[in-house]
Design a binder for these strands. Structure first.
Length: 271
DNA sequence: CCTGAAACCTGTCTGC
DNA sequence: TGCAGACAGGTTTCAG
């Protein structure tokens, strides 16, 4: 599920719809030990009990739950999801990995089919995301700064955008969609992108992320949470179908072990 | 510094 | 129907 817009959608839900702010944790259950990055199970349970949820924010693809004394960080990786509920659950809870129980009888479940997701309970979040790159939606990232960052790397633009130490929050879908909007071939060397194109790319990244957030993220495969951005993909998983701009068949190639979708006509090789 | 491959996992879909 | 293989929204680690 999880790129910046999906994580943002979940965080907003935890602040509003599911509102866990103000709740006190009275018990925790860890059903899959390796979902816990740190600390070990005994300490986790001991430390978290009694702490109250003060706030929930997002940093990159991390969900940050600020507690009385510490922070609970959750990274959903490929298949993680969060559910808040009370009473008997009606959903499929087969893949619940970590559950927090609140004093009002409700609970929050971290569900993760593929078990790639991780949970950290730490004093200082910086310990976990110290090297994370800038938030793409923040104004402090100017076109000039973005262009300068690009010009310092000769890596292919797609793997660079996926690198969370370069920018934080972009994943496979939003990267492909952004490169399409900007008309840049995914294997273009970053330092071959001229200023005007860099400016266009930053604008495209923001446009795609904001639309994703507006549509509550994308729901694909067997995971559905209400988001419908999947109905507005221009290239992602549209290989073989005509490009909506020029009609050329959208192509799928592999770059950096990731499926990569682009229009050969609108995104010519050489920036 | 860069790239590619493998690992961590479960589930779905396609083709024979 | 069965079964092999490819593939999936991510990240880390290691070899070259």
């Amino acid at each position: 599920m999880p790129e910046l817009p999906e994580v943002e959608t979940i965080v907003r839900g935890l602040r509003a719809a599911d509102n866990i702010i103000g709740k006190t944790i009275i018990n925790s259950r860890v059903l899959w030990q390796r979902s816990l990055a740190v600390p070990l199970f005994d300490d986790f349970q001991q430390f978290i009990n009694g702490q109250q949820v003060l706030d929930v924010i997002r940093r990159g693809k991390f969900i940050v739950i600020k507690l009385t004394r510490q922070s609970l960080l959750i990274h959903l990786r490929m298949s993680g999801d969060i559910f808040v509920e009370s009473g008997e659950t009606s959903r499929n809870n087969k893949h619940d990995r970590v559950i927090l129980e609140f004093s009002d009888g409700s609970r929050m479940a971290f569900n993760d089919t593929r078990k790639f997701g991780r949970v950290w309970l730490v004093d200082d979040p910086q310990m976990v995301f110290g090297k994370l790159g800038q938030e793409p939606l923040e104004d402090s990232l100017t076109s000039e700064l973005f262009f300068e960052k690009l010009s310092r790397s000769k890596r292919q633009i797609k793997p660079l955008l996926l690198d969370q130490t370069f920018l934080s929050g972009l994943g496979n879908i939003y990267t492909d969609e952004s490169l399409f909007l900007a008309g840049i071939h995914p294997s273009t060397p970053a330092n071959a992108i001229v200023f005007e194109k860099a400016e266009l790319l930053l604008k495209a990244i923001r446009e795609v992320l904001l639309e994703g957030i507006k549509r509550n993220g994308a729901s694909i495969d067997w995971v559905y949470r209400g988001g419908d951005f999947q109905n507005y993909f221009k290239v992602y998983q549209r290989d073989g179908k005509p490009c909506q701009r020029c009609g050329t068949s959208v192509q799928r190639i592999t770059i950096g072990q990731r499926g990569t979708h682009f229009c050969p006509h609108c995104q010519p090789e050489i920036a």
